[in-house]
Nucleic acid binder design. Sequence first.
DNA 1: TTAAACAAATAAAACGTTTTACCAAATGGT
DNA 2: ACCATTTGGTAAAACGTTTTATTTGTTTAA
Lengths: 343, 343
Amino acid sequence: MIKKKISIKDIAKLTGTSITTVSFVLNGKGRISKEISKKILDVAQKNGYEPNRMAVGLRTGVSKVIGLIVENIGGPFFGEMAKVIEEEAEKDGYRIIYCSTNNNLQKGKDMIRMLSQQLVDGYIITPMKGLEKEIRSLVDNEKPVVLIDGYFPGMDIPHVLVNNYESAYAAVSCFVKSGYKNIGMVTANLELVQLNDRSAGFKAALKDHGLKDNSKMVFKVPYDMSKADGVTAIKEFIGRQKRMDALFFTTNYLGTMGLQAIRDLGLDIPGDLAVISFDDNEIFNLYPPGITTIQQPTYEIAKSAIDILMEQINNHKLDASKIDLQIPSKLIERGSTRAKVTA
Amino acid sequence: MIKKKISIKDIAKLTGTSITTVSFVLNGKGRISKEISKKILDVAQKNGYEPNRMAVGLRTGVSKVIGLIVENIGGPFFGEMAKVIEEEAEKDGYRIIYCSTNNNLQKGKDMIRMLSQQLVDGYIITPMKGLEKEIRSLVDNEKPVVLIDGYFPGMDIPHVLVNNYESAYAAVSCFVKSGYKNIGMVTANLELVQLNDRSAGFKAALKDHGLKDNSKMVFKVPYDMSKADGVTAIKEFIGRQKRMDALFFTTNYLGTMGLQAIRDLGLDIPGDLAVISFDDNEIFNLYPPGITTIQQPTYEIAKSAIDILMEQINNHKLDASKIDLQIPSKLIERGSTRAKVTA
DNA sequence: TTAAACAAATAAAACGTTTTACCAAATGGT
DNA sequence: ACCATTTGGTAAAACGTTTTATTTGTTTAA
């Protein structure tokens, strides 16, 4: 009982009208009498007519699909993003096609090329170093693009992300306020502007609070390290420290590895080591005594991104004021930054 | 410097050949001489020709896109799935379009309808009660479909999921082995076959181990409850129990709520209450003393699903209807099911 | 030689829309 | 009564492919 898809032509035949008339009625375009309109709509309804998206895509050049290129669709941050983006896009009748780059440059390039086969009407991309040319080319070809979670310094491509610099700064201030002065940092060995901004905010805060910037207390975990190896590396790093009483993790992922390291070392939080991690997470809420985190405004970021993209798609010209959107994070204070008890 | 997309027609003009010839060469179809072939390929290459997927889709009826309909693309389980599915599909040149139903029936129906506008070549769907008719109709129209994480009892639609019954059974056995005899269960108030199977396995195991099936020790959290309310409800439930010494959570989500409840009540794990939760997770690994979990074989499920789907898409006359793939889970034993110390 | 087979290339139809340009009939103004 | 406008409707082109059927030479078989 396979029923062939019904087309606009069939409806025309069924109602004794022309293809044009049917198309006009269905799109509310031309001027067609009430009665004919009604008849056509009835027939369309009854037969479950759905336009062939390929055909309208071919004809109009609009696919009603937007491409989402993220680091890892499976990750908590990007997954949440993806969900919001989907929900918002759907309101305008757009569907989402996605792909994960896993921070692999070639994959990113490939994806952009694939999607640009006029398959998508716009892009939301988490940028990575090396992708500048490809993305620039999209923009030059007037494809709507919004970057999330990062940007290209010096390039006027609209982007929305958390205020990384200020957030890291705030983390340090939080430590200081609670009496911690020997503050270390664990970050990733990746050339990402987000991470650089966080590091910069961290260092600036140390300086402003009159703390010495001891680079021995900064550790960069190699990105390609397995989770287990990462934990060991962090353990060794912590072990090497003499005076460190607080540790800042620039990433969700690093934070949980760090927690495991600290647990394995049998250290007390915050007695032996106060902790703050970027990216809030169920773990950080649950894990005793509660880990203070910098909560990214995932929803706002995603919402803004899709809004800006839609504006470009619809208006076709972009409001420059929205080019650099840095959304404030929220510092969630928990037990891991309880005021220090001085012995 | 907007460069218009180059088409097959342009290449024909550029090489002084015909559209057909170019198409043949590009697809390796007809019989065209070496020299002309070479010339065409060169020109295509040089101008960065990419076929217009809309046109191809319209003509051939193949979109090279598959639709993924899950409960929540942002969730850990489905997110991981999505990633694997994407990676595997890409090997065959397929892209993924996704949407989250949030267990909303109408949304699921809408999505299936939207995607069936010949936009996608196949579907991977997490089924929900009420979607039977729509999915059946897809299958009847010879659209390749694979269900994941659930199935429709009595309907011959290929599906792949974890062996829920046996997994829950194993959880009970694990409790018993460690000396826990008064075992409760927290599940969700949702008509999902996965949950029913887990409950059934749980009950059967109780029976087989000669334990009485005390339905007072089973709690169903209303699905629409907020996280906070859920935690309170679970706290109350635990508070009502007199003899319960072990608790089984049928879901990741419930497990973390449960952990919070137990922590808030100040109970010791496993001293006061042993715990097992479905769906392994970073939290369960980290949270002291480590929570025993049933780890779903996410990778295998996703891989199998996409494999089965691809086989349907390619073979076209493959009878996959009888496929019932139940993949074994792995019980990860941690501190929360340490052998009971009898007072 | 001539018909038959074959090789290389192409014309044209089709996929299902949207949209421009046009037409016929009715209406209106003077 | 006559031109101008409006109203309701349609034919046909175009979007960029794939594919069938055909054409035009060139070999081969007899």
